[in-house]
Nucleic acid binder design. Structure first.
Lengths: 227, 227
DNA sequence: TTGCAATCGATAGTATTACTATCGTTATTA
DNA sequence: TAATAACGATAGTAATACTATCGATTGCAA
């Protein structure tokens, strides 16, 4: 048996949280507390209390909570890129491949346990990403953060998907815009279904899961745009 | 000559900012300061200083800065709904109508001075909406805020556009999802062009304005999805 | 014109946030 | 055995996000 691990560069932290028990606890419990409180209410002090450590110790690993969110987001996008590669590399037909990618992006299908992450509850992390990941870049310091390479996880994932789009229809003029739009929509539509249901047909009252409904909608949109 | 005015209900404030000079100043200067500092750095104290008033006075009008953002957002969506009605009511062909609506939503075309707002710099307000409006609902209190009717401005606008979509293609299964997706994309794509250019073909290096390029992309997407 | 209410500035005060810094103990490693 | 790293404990600071009170001005109504 094996486990995978996502390794992030040193720009993402002050001290690598994967290098110690405390660090791993900060990440795994941080996801849970962040999910419960939301980014605005979340503080390092509250996280520290929940793991019976101290504020100062958490600050040894991350400069501030925004950087912590960037770390978690990149961790998630890197994992997703790996899952997509693992699950779709064998599809030769680009159309089928893209359809599956979209289903994975939406979490419309299960993935094998081998792709689980040690210590990290991936569905909680996904929940955090849905609600908070936009805040990584909806920020006054986007340009500075971007210049340090902290968005490469997301950009790399989008690029790879855009390449598949371009394979299907090389003349389509907006592969990257289309991909970034559906990436955002993949969590927005589920969020809307849960909180502002009048904004979407994705709905709790239907037989399929919200994630599957979102994937159906996005696949419909993408396939009609192409070729 | 005439000016229009957007009137919001009393759930949006503690004291109606349109009822006094100070209130109007809070709104008009608030937009500017918010645009400059970004939501996280923005405080009522800084706003108060910039209009030579006091923190306590600002708090007399708005409970907190999040409510202030909700006020501004609703103000903007209400204005936009009015502009759309004014500028597109004469189109009988639903397709042409939708195309124009999308151009207006993206700010891809000018509007007559008659639709200007007194005391409010609409392009600055638009800039604030682009960067910050998602934070109105990406929030732990979405459900509470929604239950007080504070998102009706946005929901109403989306509904009206979705109706036009349904007119064009009554069998299309996702009119509301499509509209909410492109509403979000209309500011995201411009934001990406400015800060994360690898995520979109909308680009500063092209002859058309970013807003026009975004409108072209969204019109392409919508028209291929329908019928 | 007296008086009342509303408005606002001025000031003060509190709890929490977002950190930074230092110190001492314990565990690890060389 | 000695050095070092990791961490908990504690303290402290500036800013934030408020709430509360007081007094001066202004307009309007009896």
């Amino acid at each position: 048996m094996s486990t995978i691990s996502i390794v992030l560069g040193e720009n993402f932290f002050k001290k690598d949280p994967q290098s110690s028990d405390l660090g791993r606890k900060i990440v795994s419990k941080g996801i849970i507390v962040l999910d419960e409180l939301g980014f605005e209410e979340f503080t390092f002090k509250k996280l520290a209390e929940s793991i019976e450590s101290t504020e100062a110790s958490v600050y040894r690993y991350f400069k501030n909570k925004h950087k912590f969110l960037v770390y978690l987001s990149t961790y998630y996008w890197s994992w997703l890129e790996y899952v997509i590669a693992f699950e779709t590399h064998h599809f030769s037909d680009a159309k089928v491949k893209l359809e599956n990618i979209i289903r994975i992006v939406c979490h419309a299908q299960d993935f094998p346990d081998a792709l689980d992450l040690p210590e990290v509850d991936i569905s909680k992390l996904r929940s955090v990403i849905d609600k908070e990941s936009d805040k990584t870049y909806l920020n006054r310091n986007v340009d500075e953060i971007n210049s340090k390479g902290l968005f490469t996880g997301y950009k790399s994932l989008c690029s790879k998907i855009a390449e598949v789009v371009a394979q299907i229809d090389p003349k389509y003029p907006y592969p990257r815009a289309l991909v970034s739009m559906i990436m955002e929509a993949s969590h927005q539509q589920v969020f809307f279904a849960q909180h502002l249901p009048s904004l979407t047909e994705v709905s709790k009252g239907k037989p399929k899961r919200l994630e599957e409904q979102a994937a159906d909608f996005l696949n419909h949109t993408v396939m009609h745009s192409l070729k």
